[in-house]
């Protein structure tokens, strides 16, 4: 098992962003995390990266305790935020150099990040002049620099055209082929169906359902989108 989340609660004032959440993520697979806005997906990603402290529960990443071994966990994991978390005024190369230096990435991983994300022809271009899809690819490439064993994608295809979206999904599948465990959050069910092996649905900080994509689709004999809408509306009504 790659990640174990056990009875995790995170409160912001009176609101439980995560409410006794437990789930498991298997190594080497693409794990789809589904939930409406405010369900707790981003909070969970922040917790898994040690950015946000939990109030209760326990988290293990590759057998490492999140509370005690956060530096080690961070060194083997990486996050690609929904926002374009790089510097628009720097060139693509300057951005990659910077994040590479920060993580003391090797030359081989630097080249691999450029190759997988098809950035070699854009290296001298200022990031602000890239198209939406190219910016997303740069955002993803930065996440690959430290040769992570697990990588978290927070809705990486928001606001881009279908062609760029397909390119990004292909890149993410290539990450899995490298042996990296991928945790992927998205609102687009067709993306989840296209690339994910396992799926978990969360609502109001609680786990609603978890299983392989095939199991979930077989059990309900309906599309994932209809199933997701049914599950989340039930959770909202509770």
């Amino acid at each position: 098992m790659c990640i174990k989340v056990q009875n995790v609660t995170k409160r912001y004032g009176d609101i439980n962003a995560l409410d006794g959440l437990s789930l498991e993520i298997k190594k080497g697979r693409i794990f789809g995390l589904l939930g409406v806005n405010g369900a707790g997906k981003s909070t969970l990603l922040s917790v898994l990266n040690g950015l946000t402290a939990i109030d209760e529960g326990k988290v293990e990443v590759f057998g490492l305790d999140l509370e005690k071994e956060i530096r080690e966990i961070r060194s083997i994991s990486s996050i690609v935020p929904q926002n374009l978390a790089f510097y628009e005024k720097l060139t693509v190369r300057e951005n990659l150099d910077f994040f590479s230096d920060i993580q003391q990435a090797s030359e081989a991983h630097y080249k691999k990040a450029i190759e997988i994300n098809d950035l070699s022809k854009l290296l001298e271009q200022e990031a602000s002049t890239l198209s939406g899809g190219q910016k997303r690819r740069l955002n993803m490439a930065i996440g690959l620099l430290n040769d992570p064993q697990i990588i978290y994608f927070d809705e990486p295809t928001v606001g881009i055209d279908p062609k760029s979206r397909n390119d990004i999904l292909d890149s993410i599948k290539a990450y899995k082929d490298l042996g990296i465990t991928v945790v992927y959050t998205s609102h687009y069910m067709n993306e989840i169906e296209k690339i994910c092996d396992d799926v978990a649905v969360i609502a109001k900080g609680k786990l609603i359902e978890q299983g392989t994509l095939a199991e979930i689709l077989q059990s309900r004999s309906e599309t994932l989108e209809k199933h997701f809408l049914a599950l989340t509306s039930e959770a909202q009504d509770v």
């Binding site: 040690g50 950015l51 961070r74 929904q82 926002n83 978390a85 510097y87 628009e88 920060i102 930065i142």
Partner: peptide
């Protein structure tokens, strides 16, 4: 503020900075 809004600082923080 750009770094914070774009979550670049949070990303750096997740890189042990």
């Amino acid at each position: 503020i750009n770094e914070r809004k774009q979550h670049t600082l949070a990303r750096l923080n997740s890189m042990n900075v």
